[in-house]
């Protein structure tokens, strides 16, 4: 009986211990996938980064300006930007994520037609901008106006939802390091978005991942770009503060 209890305690103890020690999903991938992410020549996310680099200098819209016309060399101007977002949007008086910011820049300053959130061009631009923060520690924006957003995100993270009645925290805090069928449950740190997912055979942002998780627990997804997802993203970035940005990340 005592032996039984011990086994149970170890069984429950392992994931909890892992949750105390933060790790990127990279750490739990197999050696082949890690090699794919590490080798620039083999990382399919680099296709989007390269596309984004071309879009960065391409003039667009009524203003006939490119991103580079205002921001110059992205290696200088965009270093650390992705590590800091979501940020406060003065014009909209609310929090905004990096993809939303790029979209706003496009419509407001370039006078160009809005791009769909999941369009290849917008994902490529976000991937290129994020690439400039590769290896930098996640450093959430210290603006105090974001505190309420993070609180809301934390509450959402801990709220059970859907027909399976699961909260994000049930898997990514309490059961992280455990198994969901053949997959190891990651801690859910958004270290490498937009990322190349083999499952998607393409690149996608964090909000697309949220949609997957939410439909997985049979909840009604909030929708990419929704205030709920931005709040969740703001909380997750503060939860992952200090972990290095991986751009572009590859995940199964």
């Amino acid at each position: 009986m005592i032996r039984c209890v011990t086994v149970l305690a170890i069984g429950l103890g392992t994931p909890a211990a892992a949750a105390g020690d933060r790790q990127s999903g990279y750490e739990i991938m197999g050696p082949e996938l890690r090699a794919m992410q590490d080798d620039e020549a083999a990382n399919p996310g680099m296709l989007w980064v390269t596309e984004g680099a071309a879009l960065w200098v391409a003039p667009e819209g009524a203003a006939n300006r490119s991103c580079a016309s205002c921001h110059g060399d992205a290696a200088q101007s965009m270093a650390g930007v992705a590590a800091r977002y979501p940020a406060w949007n003065e014009a909209g008086q609310g929090p905004i994520d990096l993809t939303g910011r790029i979209g706003l820049c496009r419509t407001r300053h370039q006078g160009a037609a809005a791009l769909a959130r999941d369009s290849r061009a917008l994902v490529a631009l976000a991937a290129f901008v994020t690439r400039q923060s590769d290896g930098l520690p996640i450093a959430p924006d210290p603006d105090p106006r974001l505190a309420a957003t993070r609180e809301k995100g934390k509450a959402l993270f801990e709220t059970r939802m859907g027909q399976l009645n699961l909260a994000c925290a049930d898997c990514h805090d309490d059961a992280a390091g455990g198994q969901l069928a053949a997959a190891t449950i990651p801690q859910g740190h958004p270290t490498g978005y937009p990322q190349y997912r083999l499952q998607w055979e393409g690149m996608g942002g964090l909000h697309r991942r949220f949609e997957n998780c939410m439909s997985g627990v049979r909840a009604e997804p909030f929708g990419a770009g929704s205030p709920e997802y931005i709040a969740l993203e703001a909380f997750l970035m503060s939860r992952a503060a200090g972990l290095p940005v991986e751009a572009p990340a590859v995940r199964p």
Binding site: A41, A42, N43, P44, M46, L47, E201
Partner: peptide, 9 residues
């Protein structure tokens, strides 16, 4: 020789 091709396959 390494090549990564952008294609939907």
């Amino acid at each position: 020789v390494k090549i990564l091709i952008s294609h939907p396959m």
